[in-house]
Structure formats: structure tokens, C-alpha cells
Design a protein around this nucleic acid. Structure first.
Lengths: 181, 181, 181, 181
DNA sequence: GATGAATGAGCATTCATTCAT
DNA sequence: AATGAATGAATGCTCATTCAT
């Protein structure tokens, strides 16, 4: 059922009727309510599971040899997936989702695990030093949302992400850094 | 009435009830329907009017002395204004808005006028050459949406936009360009 | 529409579906909501109108020549009607009805107008002196509810009310009063 | 399980969900349905058990020395207990409970046993002679329901019951009876 | 026999849209 | 042309009842 909800929310966003989710899951509407007290709770569970995946991905990459590439790979992966899923976009934009509760914990984890990637990349000189995790999260979320307008055009996503990653590496001010000589 | 709709959509997004718009405009709901066949048509009209403003701004800036500054000023202005309005964000992220109809025409105009700014900035070496108008529009949308997060934290927004603009100037790949010698 | 709601609530109580009320009124469900924000608000409006009728009846009787008969007539009338209507019974027993708001005002009025009848009847020696308006209201409400079990048997209602009225006149302790000599 | 249902119905009335009863009883909902075909049947069983208690109490009191005191003690006991329970009040006021089936038998028993108390009290001159068992049952129900209002104000309840009992003893019309001389 | 997950009809409420005045 | 009352389909949620295990 969680699977059906994931698919439905990913495809239609939070606006998908609960009956539609129930239908996709092949159960009655009441059955959904047996497992989740409200539609919002179900939505949060879906988001939670997705965020957990990202946390896992970030934690795996923390041991990558190339700190910069690790961060950039993570960002690319997250943004690319985000362009496909409507649920996280709704969670990010809609004020209807409370980040209190179980969601707040895993969101903190995501922040922390990405911050670890960021700090390592900055220490390695691969990312400019004048931004923190808040700036990075905002940038990721934004690109995430922007890509929704061109669902499926992966090459476009890649070029957009490339620009953003270059911004992260450091703009003109960063030239000094990459050309220390 | 369009003014009332602008305010209402800006404040509440596409989700604002049509009755609320009619009430703000001081007219009956039926009167709104005399001018716009559906709520969506009204929304599109609002977006259209906003896009037209942007077209005007872009056209003014095309004569600016500094081509790079012109583009960046435009982007910053658009982002600053947009961060306050919920309607364009909905239009950008929500798949519910068709860009067919009158909207497609003015959207093309916006594309063209921004493309003019882009081309000029690229010719002046202020912006990397490996992106086109589609990439730029997506990136602008991205920065636009970035402003909707952490509403009110202007300094954060500035840092985020700075990163994105630096990316536009050109990352490592752009070094060759800014250091032609 | 209020009429339809009165009939529906009187016949079925608060449990009547709002669609049923709408159907009885010959309108759509949405139309009911145009006039009353919630079903509870509609119910309160119905109760309010009924309580107002009682207030009017009590106020008319305050000028009756026979103070005791005035009070007893009022009680009989109220209990008899109550045995027919399910709405006031629900309002009296159900905790679901808030007596805050407009209802609290008219309820106070009802209390006051009945208290006036009571005080006058007590001054005339027609009613025992050891009870106040709270006791009387409780007694009326109780008989009101008890009669619901025998809807339509008016003669039974009358005999029951007769017993209660005798209790109000004064039981054994009241014999001294009616036989002062 | 019957105990759990008694507690649940007493606390919440007929409106308590069946799942809640099953939970209190520590069994599955299906198990309740193995013993009672419908929720209403369970409710009737609970009422039946309570009515049986009353029948027992009435039969004990039939041998009491003071016939009048016996009846009044019974009424007061019934009212005192009943004021705490919501189930009988629902059964008395709600038209939703059919007295057909097993309930009708024990209800007849209750009627008969109380009628015995009544007849004896009337023969002893402690209760007016112009009422029958139906009137008495209605009056008891009335006092019963009186206790549900102003829950906790025991002194109020006592004054209200006193009035009703005085009415039973006989008002002015009863004077001839208590003063046969 | 017991369980409790599943069912699905039912209800209050919202809101885009229509139309008689 | 304007009004705003009316419409009714849609939605989230509850709960009595059923049935596979």
C-alpha cells in the first residue's frame, strides 16, 4: 500500500484523492485509514521513506575518494529524481505538510548527512567556503523544483545542474582558488 | 477585477476560491465568469500580466551599458519580486497550468527578450557560452523558487542567488573564457 | 429552508443527514451551506427559533390572572410539544450542542421569563417555595424527555404532567399551605 | 465482554464505536459479532442486564415493611445509579432501541415488579391512586433523566426528586386520600 | 472459535460553475 | 450586463459488518 501511495503521490502530488490511492493499492478507502490515521500521515510516511533513501545515499557517498565528486554526484542524483517525483515538490512548496513529528527527525538527518558531504568538499577545496548547509539545501530544493517544468529532459537537467555545480565550486571569486599559482 | 485576482492569487496561490476573488473585487462570482470562462483562464490572465511586466523589464535592460549586469539585474529583480508572489510559483511548479493559448505568445516574448539579454551577456564574456535560453529559464525559475523557502531571510536569498549567478558566469569550464590570454 | 430543517430535526433529531434536510427543502446540499456554515449552526438556528417561541409564550402568560394556572399552562404546553419534537430532546441530552453563542442569550431569556412565572406563582402560594428556576427547568426538561417514550399518547402526557404539577404545588409538606386553617 | 460493553455504553452511550468495545474487552471485533449479531443486539443485552438488576431490586423491596418507603427507595436507587450511566438514558430517549425481542420480556418483568410496589404503596395510602404503572414508569424515567442534567450537583438532584416524589404522594387531589376523615 | 484486516456505504463540507432575476 | 443564490460532484474520514486465516 505504501508502494501504491508512493506511486500515486509521485505521479499526482498531494492532490491525488485518497480513493485513487486505495484503488491503485487494490483496497478500500477504509483500509488505508486502518494504516494511516489521515491522508497527511500517509503522505508524510511516503516523504519519510523517500528522505530516508536520500540519507542513505548521502551516507554512502561520505566515504567516496573524491569529496567534491561525492557531493556533486549526490546533488545530481537528488535533483534528477526530484524532477520525476511530484510528492517531494509538494512537500517542499506546500505549507500543508508539517515537518514536526517523525519527519523532523529524518529531515535533520538529511541535513546532517549532506552537511558532512559539504564540509568535506569544502575542506578539499572543491566547493566554495562561503556557503553553509542552509544555502546548499535551498539551492538543491530550488533546482529540484525548477526541473519539474521539463520532466523527462534529462540532458537539460544535467546542463542546469552543471551550472549550479559550477556556482558551488566558486564563481569568478573562485578562480583564485582553482588557480592558486 | 484583474487586480483583485492578482492580489488573491499572489497571496494564496491557485488554491484561492473564486468566491474570494470576486469578494475582493467587489463583484459577484457570475461577473468573473462573464470575463473569464474558467478559473484557470483567470489565473492564466494574471500570469500573463505578470509575464508582460517581465517582458517590459527585459526590453528596457537590453540597452543597458553593461550586458552582464543587465542580465543579472533582471534576474535579481525577477527573483526579488517573485519571491513574494505565490501565483508564479504555482504556475512554475504546478503541472495544472497550460501554456497553450494567449499565455504561450507572451511566454515566447519573455523567452525572446531574455534570450536577447543572454546572448549579449555571452558575447561580452560575462556569461558562459555553453547554455541556451532553456537552461537559463530553468535556472531563473530555480532561483525564483529558492526565494520562496525561508521567506524573509533576505541575506540567505542573496547568498543563494550569488551562487547561481556565479554558476552562470562560468565555473572552471569558463576559466578559459575569462582568461583568454 | 429553516422550515424544512425544523421538520427534519423534529422528526429525526440531530442525526438526520444534511442531504435529507436539503432534499426536504427542495434544494441542493450546497445551498444549505450558503445559509448556515455548519450543520450544527443550522441545528442551533432551529433550536433558537423554538426556544424563542417558548419565550414568547412565557411572556404572554405573565399577565394571566391566575399565576399558578399561568405557570402550569406553560409547563403543560412545553412538555406536550417536547414530546413531539426530537430536536430539543437532542439539544437537551446531547453534549454536541454548544449553548455558547446566540443560543446562550435566548436561553437566558427563557430562564428569566419562566422564572418570572415561577416567582409569581410562588408569591400567590400556588407553587412550593423551596425550589428555584434551576430545579424547575430540570424538572421540565426531564418530563419533556420522558414523554418521548410515548409519543402521541396525549392523555398519558397529561396524567404525568398532572403528577409533576402536584409535586410543584407542594407534596405532603404543602398540605399545611393549602389548608392554612 | 458484556462487562466491557456495559462500561463502554455507560460511559459513552450508544454512540461508542464497536471497535472501542472490542478493545476494552480485549477481543477482536469479529468475536463480538460471534456473540451478538449486531451492535444493537449487544446494546440491548447490556440494557437487559441492567433492567434485570432493577427487577431484582424491586423484588427485594416488595417485602419491605413500609410500602411507601419501599417504592420511593427503589425510585431513588434507580435514579441515583442511572444518573451515572449514559446507556439507559439513550435507551429511554432514543427511539433507536426496539423493545421487541428478549428485552420485551424483562421489561414486562420490571413493569410487573414495580407495579407490585406501586399497588402496595397505593393500598397503604402512600401514593395517589389515580395513576397506573405506565404513568409511574414515565415519571421514573423523567426523574432518571433529570439526573443527567447538572451532573455532579447531587443536592439539586435531591430537590428535583423530592418534588417528583411529592407529586406521587399526591397533590391537592390527594388531600382527600391522606385526610380521609 | 477467535482474530483483526478489509470493506464500502454514508456523512459533513467545499467550491467551480450555472442561471434566473 | 451584473448579481449571487443554487447546484452537485468531489473529498476526507468513520464505522458497522464481513470473512479469510
Amino acid at each position: 500500500m505504501l508502494k501504491a501511495a508512493q506511486d500515486a503521490f509521485a505521479a499526482e502530488g498531494l492532490a491525488v484523492p485518497l480513493d485513487e490511492i486505495a484503488r491503485r493499492a487494490g483496497v478500500g478507502a477504509g483500509t488505508v485509514y486502518r494504516h494511516f490515521p489521515t491522508k497527511e500521515a500517509l503522505f508524510e510516511a511516503v516523504i519519510l521513506s523517500r528522505v530516508q533513501e536520500y540519507v542513505g545515499a548521502a551516507r554512502e557517498l561520505i566515504t567516496d575518494q573524491d569529496p567534491g565528486e561525492a557531493l556533486f554526484t549526490f546533488i545530481q542524483r537528488m535533483i534528477h529524481e526530484g524532477g520525476m517525483k511530484k510528492d517531494l515538490a509538494d512537500a517542499l512548496t506546500g505549507a500543508g505538510v508539517d515537518v514536526t513529528g517523525a519527519l523532523s527527525g529524518v529531515t535533520s538527518e538529511l541535513n546532517d548527512s549532506i552537511e558532512a558531504l559539504l564540509t568535506r568538499a569544502q575542506a578539499a577545496g572543491a566547493v566554495r567556503g562561503d556557503i553553509g548547509i542552509t544555502e546548499l539545501m535551498t539551492i538543491i530544493a530550488s533546482a529540484f523544483l525548477a526541473n519539474r517544468a521539463h520532466v523527462g529532459d534529462i540532458e537539460l537537467h544535467q546542463r542546469v545542474v552543471a551550472v549550479i555545480l559550477d556556482g558551488l565550486r566558486g564563481g569568478p571569486a573562485g578562480i583564485d582558488k582553482v588557480l592558486p599559482g
